[in-house]
């Protein structure tokens, strides 16, 4: 049986009021007319929240198990220090998404801004996934300590990422190589390694997965768990 969706008209509501309404609502919630209110769904669990309009910064910050479906684009700080749950963005996303993310999944249909997935980490069964349909700005996966970042590069751009994985000491990053790209990369795999992720992504956004599965991906693994050994001198 379809559980009825609770509607919250966000017009003229503060972030605090929206979150209070979410807390008191049934499992399925639609936030209508959202326009920049921050922290929607912060630290929540057990809810499915659809957001119409433009959600504000730190949407899904510290998220602890809820599912957020953004019908529009996302602003900065999406899924900041997120722990569990799922965030789906039917559009693009601003800077610093998935900062310090330790679990759950984020799917962005289009591109993300700079500093995505910095310091994502994993422990035990908790492994975060950040999946980007198109491209990512600078510093993607900086200090990556765990989890998976996938850049699907759907528009086949030559350089879908820049300055990626600096200081990476854990986790893995996959970047789809454009068909026109003839450069040699060190570690190249096909999409079978991430078939489950690609399938989920394509299912969500109603896309054809075959092309993505049969593409080539650069795979970035940490060279060492201790990238800064030798940087110091004991005094």
């Amino acid at each position: 049986m379809q559980v009825s969706k609770m509607k919250i008209n966000c017009e003229n509501l503060t972030a605090r009021k929206i979150n209070e309404a979410i807390m008191q609502s049934s499992e399925k919630i639609v936030c209508e007319n959202c326009c920049g209110q921050r922290y929607i769904g912060a630290a929540s669990s057990g809810k499915t929240i659809e957001i119409e309009g433009i959600s504000g910064n730190d949407c899904g910050g510290l998220l602890d198990g809820s599912t957020l479906i953004l019908k529009g684009n996302a602003q900065e700080g999406l899924g900041d220090t997120m722990n569990a749950g799922k965030i789906i963005v039917h559009g693009h996303c601003g800077d610093i998404c998935a900062y310090g993310m330790r679990g759950g999944k984020i799917f962005i249909r289009d591109y993300i801004g700079v500093r995505g997935g910095i310091h994502m980490k994993e422990y035990g069964d908790s492994k975060p996934l950040l999946m980007i349909g198109e491209t990512a700005g600078a510093c993607l996966g900086e200090y990556l300590a765990g989890g998976t970042i996938i850049v699907l590069n759907r528009r086949d751009e030559l350089d879908p990422v820049e300055n990626v994985g600096v200081g990476q000491h854990g986790g893995v990053i996959y970047v789809r190589i454009a068909s026109s790209d003839e450069r040699n990369y060190e570690d190249v795999v096909d999409g079978s390694e991430i078939e489950a992720e690609i399938s989920e992504f394509c299912e969500i956004f109603k896309m054809d997965k075959e092309k993505l599965l049969h593409s080539k991906y650069r795979r970035l693994l940490p060279e060492t768990k201790n990238p800064y050994q030798g940087y110091y001198c004991m005094n």
Binding site: R102, H119, Y123, Y143, A145, G146, G170, P227, Y228
Partner: peptide
Amino acid sequence: KTRMIQQGSEAISP
């Protein structure tokens, strides 16, 4: 366990 990171890796605070 406390930091919720993989054992034996460097724990880097930017």
